[in-house]
Design a protein around this nucleic acid. Structure first.
Lengths: 168, 168
DNA sequence: CTGACTGCAAACCCTTTGCAGACCG
DNA sequence: CGGTCTGCAAAGGGTTTGCAGTCAG
């Protein structure tokens, strides 16, 4: 249930290199925290990481875990999962469809594709559990966010935004 | 930028039928709230819906919007988007991969597939924005949750769970 | 040594809940 | 009319932040 030893070692090297390059300090807790995420196959959330690290280092605090996790994301050593963390969104389109999600503003749009609807799922997935839905998620920068500076043409003013100004 | 008129009408019919069948009351606010989600292509969150409905019905409260949104989900008239709402999760696997997510316990696992990595994305998506990542998300019931009752064999004890007891 | 980092506690934001009055059927 | 719903206000849970002491480089 763990990531292979060699793979973890490789991730740790990338970790140290990235820290050196970014010029941030390599503290004991950062190492433990990254080690935890790198060795896990569970896609843990902050609290899971916290509990695991806490076992070996009883003084860590949950906020350090959060800060470190986001730092790691910034250095592109790990990725936050799923659509941008924020509020739950709802979808009234009950037909088969797929999603395009803007990594910057969170804009989410449906798109349809017969070809994608009929994708064959690898047999190995069967070992994980039953298959109820299969959706393709495409992430990128929406045309609006891709526009150079002067982002005056905000789509309709409402909706969409609200997602940018994250991070500390 | 809206859903077609006929489609909205169809969704409204399904809505009324489902309400009658479920024996829940069809109130003014519920109708407005559903209408808002059904006509939007934005996958709004509770607050977006709230603001939109509030414009036409200044007395609605945000909590009613929440309650209605979840009610609609229960009646399968809309679907909450993305992996179960809860905390952000992180992924240290930077290689191309896809996700299997259990709809009940939130368990999330990677799986690889050359075939899936090379899927051709429909040209229409280009109009939405650039493509940075393409991932297939398979949702279903993991083997553990699928087990009849006596779910004694909890995977490793830790991780995983924490996601079930949602909803009011 | 010194600025970056940590732990602590308090603040925040989104979401949920208990309760009394309002309204659908 | 009666039970379901709503609005209100307050509680909850996850996440973030300001501050003073601590530690990596």
């Amino acid at each position: 249930m763990d990531v292979g030893k060699t793979e973890v070692a490789r991730r740790l090297d990338a970790f140290k290199a990235a820290f050196k390059k970014a010029g941030v300090k390599l503290t004991h807790q950062r190492l433990e925290i990254f080690g935890e995420v790198a060795a896990s196959v569970e896609h843990p959330d902050a609290e899971m990481v916290f509990r695991a690290v806490q076992a070996r280092m009883p003084t860590v605090s949950l906020d350090t875990v959060y800060r470190t996790l986001w730092l790691l994301s910034e250095l592109r050593l790990i990725n936050p999962l799923g659509p941008r963390r924020e509020s739950v969104r709802f979808d009234a389109n009950l037909a088969k469809h797929h999603h395009y999600v803007c990594m910057q503003c969170g804009l989410t749009r449906d798109f349809e594709s017969l070809a994608l609807d009929t994708i064959r799922i690898p047999a190995a997935v069967k070992n994980l559990g039953s298959v109820v839905v299969m959706q393709v998620e495409v992430r990128g920068l929406c045309t609006n966010c891709a526009k150079p500076k002067t982002a005056k043409t905000r789509t309709k003013g409402t909706q969409q935004g609200r997602t940018e100004g994250r991070r500390r």
